[in-house]
Design a protein around this nucleic acid. Structure first.
Lengths: 212, 212
DNA sequence: GTCTATAAGCCGATAGAC
DNA sequence: GTCTATCGGCTTATAGAC
């Protein structure tokens, strides 16, 4: 059953995501969140106690999806398949959870002052695991010798940029909003650079060779 | 001659860069900037008139270096050489102008409310030019058919991430600060993905071919 | 030119009526 | 549970002494 409570909390959370993403934590006014949600300001405090609490709920809503995106690394499989699936998941997050994604990015940029130590640790553990997976592939000769850290940083950056810097992307592409084909092209470009650039093994076919 | 005026302005600008980069515009207190500069707060207002003015000076200090980084595209040359030089310039900016770089990123994330229309236009023009260069190379068969927009977004993201998300990079690498070798490895990883992944012609040697 | 001391206003938070 | 009306603290900005 969707009580008034649940409906209002949802309205506030949605409004807060947008406001925090657009302006950042400090520049966002709770009165603006309330106005965007179509509710009086004290309701915001009634449901969420404080601005910081509300912010944390928005922020933490993205952590689980981010961890879930690393599933391909946890399940194992051919390097190229894992990387492709990972990149597509990350792009999907940028597209479908754009606001929370941006809030997360802003938070990380400023040293994650609001993220719980536990969640920071979880994300860090997952990153370490992904890096050791990539290192193992390299050791097995399944891909070129690149530094796994830097490869991961590039994948994060290239996929997140579609949420974080959407304004710039709109300007340069001349499109107010990217459509499905644009996101598909983005994913393919990144996949090409990662799989091709790092000469990642496809598994079933023989490793790609480059001739001069 | 370096008058007290110039020295103080410089102290304030430097302190402001760090504070704005660390906390963002809204969360930064002018009293903290003054304290970090070792000067009384009214000096900040005496030299810069307002917080916003000071912020704009920090912000705009990065525009020229950013435009200069695109020089390789303006000078022409072999595709691989141009892209390599461009990527190295962008990485250098992330390393040497980390604070201003981060302020710029934060600004773009929030829709560039403080950037002048003129500078926005300049940066956009340069981006458009770089994109048409890449498109021309593709049309001439000098590189694979990738969408130049997405290629450029990936390069921007992958290079800027070292300034913008330095906190995350420190955590994952376990290093408080990256050294020259780390930046070199970063540049090489990105160059490999771009040149290799997009099969960019080296010019002197024949175009790379991939065989299954 | 420099700095102490203060004004002015904004915004997070809540008391208390309904 | 909901909302009007208001408080209180914090921060930008400056007046005015030196």
């Amino acid at each position: 059953m969707t009580s008034i409570r649940e409906r209002n909390k949802e309205l506030i959370l949605r409004a807060a995501s947008e406001e925090f993403a657009d302006k950042g934590f400090a520049a966002t006014k709770t009165s603006d969140i309330a106005a965007k949600a179509g509710l009086p300001k004290p309701n915001v405090y009634y449901y969420f106690k404080s601005k910081e609490n509300l912010y944390r709920e928005v922020l933490e809503s993205i952590v689980e999806p981010l961890l879930a995106a690393s599933q391909p690394f946890n399940q194992g499989g051919q390097p190229a398949d894992v990387l492709r699936a990972y990149i597509r998941s990350k792009i999907r997050i940028s597209r479908d959870l754009a606001y929370a994604s941006k809030v997360f990015a802003s938070e990380i940029m400023h040293g994650a002052p609001h993220l719980s130590a536990e969640q920071t640790a979880q994300l860090n553990e997952q990153a370490k695991h992904n890096i050791s997976c990539i290192q193992a592939w390299i050791d097995q000769g399944l891909m070129a010798k690149v530094d796994p850290h830097h490869l991961l940083f590039s994948i994060w950056a290239a996929t997140q940029t579609y949420a974080d810097f959407d304004w710039q992307i709109s300007i340069v592409t001349g499109k107010a909003k990217l459509d499905d084909a644009d996101y598909e092209a983005a994913a393919e470009t990144i996949i090409r650079m990662v799989i091709g650039g790092c000469e990642v093994s496809e598994g079933s076919v023989k490793p790609v060779k480059v001739v001069g």
